[in-house]
């Protein structure tokens, strides 16, 4: 091989070495589930008057004297279950969700994220419940249907 071509060819990769990409910080997963309420008889969207909605393990109150058609339930990233207490015009109800927890580092700049999947209910005291989506992501607005 001719020497100038050799030099050019040998230093070509140095151009590419500095072009390694870093991941962006966009994540599509969420740390909550969207619960939508339905009437059992009509199978239509229901409106609930929530006297109070709380979760075991947190001092915060999710809803207090709210009229809602849906709620967002935050998933506990410390353990693989979360228990929620509903007080509404239908009485006191409990919902226990179980899920798989995963974590990964997105990048040094973006930090770590917790990923929830395989969501299902362990116990519940409503008329019935259906998990329609078991991996919470931003584009989906309905993960669980609760029938009263």
């Amino acid at each position: 091989m001719k020497f100038p071509y050799v030099i050019a060819a040998l230093f070509l990769p140095l151009v590419f070495v500095s072009c390694l990409d870093d991941p962006d910080c966009v994540t599509t997963t969420t740390d909550f589930v969207n619960v939508v309420f339905y009437e059992t008889e009509e199978n239509l969207a229901d409106t609930l008057f929530l006297e109070q909605l709380t979760a075991q393990g947190s001092d915060s109150i999710l809803h207090y004297r709210d009229t809602v058609t849906s709620v967002r339930l935050p998933l506990d990233p410390r353990v693989n279950t979360a228990t929620y207490y509903f007080q509404s015009q239908y009485g006191n109800d409990t919902l226990v969700l179980e899920y798989q927890l995963g974590a990964r580092l997105i990048s040094e700049d973006c930090g770590a994220e917790v990923i929830f999947s395989q969501i299902e209910y362990l116990t519940q005291t409503f008329d019935s419940i259906i998990v329609v989506n078991n991996v919470p992501v931003e584009d989906i607005t309905e993960d669980i249907r609760i029938f009263n």
Binding site: G57, L62, D76, P77, R78, A112
Partner: peptide, 18 residues
Amino acid sequence: QLDYSLNNPFWGDQQNSL
């Protein structure tokens, strides 16, 4: 190994290691 901190306004702050 990942040592990470959770800064969750609802559940509180916590350190975790996996």
